[in-house]
């Protein structure tokens, strides 16, 4: 075999080797692209807020589910569930493969340490109601300001009334959001109105207005038929279809609500970013609004209060 033939054979060998490498790279790239991306599994664990209490927020989450590669498992606790039960539920979801958790914290003082511990193993984001001064990110409107706005709206509507008395529905005060709203509410009315309990009003003490700081108590308030409350005007925070219907029917004077659709959508987006390590979110303030019965069907509010449900 002469030099020329050796040279040809060497070239053939090099060419074949390069072709094999190119084909291997190509098929690897093509097959790699065809491998379906695994969906991120997350869980949303919410306290009970009535039959339609989370409708708007879950609609936002579903929109995020459509937009991002995420599979969401929704868990709504029973009405009597406490913080411990919620923690156990969160842990169970993580144990079952949830890569992150969105939680509406039902009892922040009970869950503070437990959530801190869990957040070290998987990303946790709180919605609507958080965990006090914890580092767990919270997606919610400023609850103190919403409470303050509620009080201010009552003062505005009863500005000519002397000795203004407001009945406050005090329930679920172990929720961080409710506590902050109450603080804001009391600060707004401080020195300008007398705050009594709803029970006192029912028992005969005259209340010009009644206020509820969260969805469940607000819906309950709008459905009350107590004679003692016949002339009492209702105010509250939180929007559900039933509450909006109550507003529309005139059972509620004014409603303070936050953009729960955005809250749900952005919380999922943020959690996915946390899981992928792109970003570490902290508190995210949602917009909040005050709407009266006359304004319900104005375009701006109509779009927020009545999300289009597929």
């Amino acid at each position: 075999m002469n030099k020329e033939n050796i040279s040809v054979l060497r070239t053939a060998g090099i060419c074949i080797a390069l072709i094999v490498i190119i084909l291997a790279t190509f098929f690897n790239a093509v097959m790699g692209d065809e491998t379906p991306k695994s969906q991120t599994e997350i869980s949303v664990i919410l306290y009970h807020a009535g039959s339609d209490g989370w409708e708007s927020m879950m609609e936002g989450m579903k929109q995020a589910e459509d937009d991002f590669a995420v599979n969401i498992n929704y868990v709504i606790l029973r009405e009597s569930a406490d913080g411990q039960e919620q923690l156990e539920m969160i842990q169970r979801e993580i144990d079952n493969g949830a890569q992150g958790v969105i939680v509406a914290v039902c009892a922040y003082s009970e869950m503070y340490e437990g959530l801190e511990r869990i957040s070290n193993t998987a990303p946790v984001i709180a919605v609507e109601s958080g965990v006090g001064d914890s580092m767990i990110p919270l997606f919610s409107a400023d609850n103190y300001e919403m409470g303050r706005m509620l009080g201010e709206q009552i003062l505005e509507d009863f500005q000519d009334r002397e000795n203004l008395t407001v009945a406050l529905v005090r329930e679920n005060v172990n929720r961080d959001s409710v506590e902050q709203r109450e603080q804001g509410f009391r600060d707004a009315l401080a020195g300008k109105a007398k705050i009594i309990s709803l029970g006192a009003a029912i028992n005969g003490e005259i209340a010009d207005a009644a206020a509820a700081l969260h969805k469940e108590s607000l819906l309950e308030l709008t459905e009350r038929t107590d004679v003692a409350l016949r002339d009492t005007k209702n105010y509250g925070i939180g929007n559900t279809t039933s509450i909006v219907a109550a507003l529309d029917k005139g059972n509620l004077e004014k409603l303070i609500f936050q953009n729960e659709f955005n809250m749900g959508y952005l919380a999922v987006e943020a959690l996915l970013q946390d899981i992928s390590g792109e970003n570490k979110n902290t508190v995210k303030d949602m917009d909040y609004y005050c709407v009266s019965r006359k304004e319900v069907y104005e375009t701006q509010y109509e779009r927020l209060l009545f999300p289009i449900v597929e």
Partner: peptide
């Protein structure tokens, strides 16, 4: 990717054939 792969392979084969 397909085009470049085919082109690269064709060029390599051509180099070999041409040398041969």
């Amino acid at each position: 990717a397909v085009w470049m792969t085919v082109l690269a392979i064709a060029i390599l084969m051509l180099i070999f054939v041409n040398q041969y």
